[in-house]
């Protein structure tokens, strides 16, 4: 399967941290020091993960499907611990007699075979098996050698200061935090600051931080959102003409979040949400299961993205 690089968006420039933050200098160092390295690493990752973000188009799907020329995937293997992505193989298929345009599989990393019944054992599961919430508290509040305190950007008790562009971590579930950190590590999610941080974390650090943050209370109860009508409408009802289901279906009404891997959106900074939707649209962020967010982001206009972001940001007073 030929890889196609998406039109690469530059990694968004990091907002300078507010002057009152603690530990500004490690952040600045991390920002400007390895930025070039990060850009290069992200660029390679983008190439490696088939994340053009375009929904596969019926007309384009004429390429032959993949045939496994790697190790035989026997029908019905015993459930293994191998990651499902790895198990499916990555063989190239011989081109048919009639040359056809190849198809990109933009959102599935690999096209699984119908004889592959293996379970998914995502890397964040293993990370969660290690690390304790006590260790996590230390990393979050004060940091450890080599690892800056999460609170320096994400705020005390996992609630980012008002006006900051960083997302809250309190209220996110343990599994979600662990997954995001592993995704930053693998490159399916990328960010100039978070990527090197995640890469410097051991599995046990990831587990520790996730356990601690996932256990933090959300101190403010979500309030009825009073943002733009268009945002509320997309949240509650979706849009038939655009083929958009209600965001609330998965994210909870008003973005309150339901379930471990579907993040809450309520109260997140508008700029953060806008950046995420942009990242999904370009494929820079490709850690959404099944590619659903990438599909939706492509059908959201800039005005819709603004409306949604304002709506969710307004969910907290």
């Amino acid at each position: 399967m030929m890889l196609r690089r998406s039109s690469e968006e530059p990694v968004p420039a990091q907002h300078p941290p507010a002057p009152h933050r603690r530990r500004v200098w490690p952040v600045l160092l991390l920002m400007f020091g390895p930025v070039v390295v990060i850009l290069a690493a992200v660029g390679v990752n983008m190439g490696r993960s088939w994340t053009s973000g375009d929904a596969v188009r019926a007309a384009a799907v004429t390429a032959p499907q993949m045939v496994d020329t790697g190790p035989a995937v026997s029908a019905g293997p015993a459930p293994q611990t191998s990651n499902q992505v790895a198990a499916a193989g990555a063989g190239q298929t011989p081109m048919p007699a009639t040359p056809r345009p190849t198809v990109t599989s933009p959102t599935a990393e690999v096209v699984r075979m119908a004889t592959d019944f293996s379970p998914a054992r995502p890397t964040w599961e293993a990370a969660l098996a290690a690390g304790s919430a006590e260790d996590g508290q230390r990393i979050v509040e004060v940091g450890i050698p080599g690892l800056v305190a999460c609170s320096s950007c994400h705020g005390k008790a996992g609630i980012a200061p008002a006006g900051s562009p960083f997302p809250d971590l309190a209220g996110k579930q343990t599994e979600y935090i662990a997954k995001q950190l592993m995704d930053f590590r693998s490159g399916t999610r990328s960010h100039a600051v978070m990527t090197p941080i995640a890469r410097s974390m051991k599995d046990s650090d990831v587990g520790a931080v996730a356990k601690y943050l996932g256990g933090l209370p959300v101190t403010e109860a979500p309030v009825r959102a009073t943002g733009p009508a268009r945002g509320e409408s997309l949240d509650r009802v979706g849009d038939m003409a655009l083929g958009l289901p209600a965001c609330a279906n998965c994210h909870g009404m008003g973005g309150t979040g339901i379930g471990p891997l579907l993040p809450s959106l309520a109260g997140e900074p508008a700029q953060y949400l806008i950046e995420q939707l942009h990242a999904f649209r370009t494929g820079n962020r490709s850690n959404d299961d099944g590619g659903v967010m990438r599909g939706f982001a492509k059908r959201l206009s800039e005005a819709d993205i603004q409306a949604l972001a304002q709506f969710y940001a307004a969910s907290k007073q």
Partner: peptide, 12 residues
Amino acid sequence: RPYINSEGLPMS
């Protein structure tokens, strides 16, 4: 996965 069908309509 996200899919644009033969009529150009989106599915998720």
